[in-house]
């Protein structure tokens, strides 16, 4: 219950932050702008609009997740409100989890808003025939952002927001290089140390590339096998990985001197 109350208050507070609204408005503006491509055939146009729209939702979501999460704990410490909260019957892990779920709810609201606008525009462009398949890609984007939010949240327990911004962004970029890390981990020509290094990165670092699933949704003609099995595993990966990171954050936060 305490966790829920903190999450709710975090959501309310986050939605009042102007910077998030700026990101959201820019993203919405770009989604609307992407509908101005009129020189293409119908299929090309829809391909470009879908790829742009999903790309913008993912990029804007990434910035919103990082900027939101890096400030959640440090801001409370800086304003000293955390001491007031923790002096009440609120456990530290409840506070931390509340903050996390509040951030996640904020990300969800932002992604949902962008998605609704995108879906409406796409439906209009597609002669009022809705393409609900894009919701699958948006679902995957959301779980990617969930993982990113957890990463930024964990770092926020250890480092300052500025350091956290670069650290989280770096982890996101490295975690998006699956093609390279996987290839290097399996490269028989490389020595054992290099293979081991890349194996650790590929298998143990958060792998954000698992969630770039937009291609067959942009191109419905492309056949995909066991689509939902893949989505299920990707969602399980995000939940399990986030659980590990949240445990690390809780353990560290419990020991922190405040």
């Amino acid at each position: 219950m305490t966790t829920f109350v903190i999450a709710k208050s975090t959501l309310g507070e986050a939605l009042r932050k102007k910077i998030l609204w700026i990101f959201l408005l820019v993203a919405l503006g770009m989604i609307v702008m992407s509908f101005s491509f009129a020189e293409f055939s119908m299929r090309e146009e829809l391909t470009i609009i879908k790829s742009f729209g999903l790309g913008i939702i993912a990029i804007a979501g990434m910035f919103i997740s990082i900027i939101l999460s890096i400030n959640l704990i440090p801001a409370e410490i800086e304003r000293r409100t955390i001491y007031t909260i923790l002096s009440k019957p609120v456990r530290r892990h409840e506070f931390l989890l509340g903050k996390f779920f509040g951030a996640l709810a904020t990300v969800f609201v932002n992604v949902a808003l962008m998605s609704v606008i995108f879906l409406i525009m796409l439906t209009w462009k597609n002669h009022w025939q809705p393409d609900f398949a894009i919701l699958k890609a948006i679902l995957m984007i959301f779980f990617q952002l969930e993982l990113l939010t957890t990463v930024a949240m964990v770092f926020s327990v250890f480092v300052t927001p500025v350091v956290n911004f670069f650290l989280s962004s770096g982890v996101y970029i490295i975690g998006s290089l699956s093609d390279i890390t996987e290839a290097m981990a399996r490269n028989k020509d490389a020595n054992a140390f290099v293979r081991g290094f890349y194996s650790v990165i590929h298998y143990l670092m958060p792998n954000f590339a698992n969630y770039f699933t937009q291609n067959p949704i942009i191109h419905p003609e492309a056949p995909v096998q066991n689509e939902w099995a893949y989505y299920g595993k990707a969602i399980a990966y995000a939940i399990v990985y986030s659980s590990i990171l949240l445990i690390v954050a809780v353990v560290k936060f419990e020991k922190r001197d405040m």
Binding site: L204, N207, P216, N226
Partner: peptide
Amino acid sequence: VVAKLQAMLDPGRKQFQP
């Protein structure tokens, strides 16, 4: 568990990122 899930995801990922 995470490593195993990643190993299970790798073959499927190719068809989403061709």
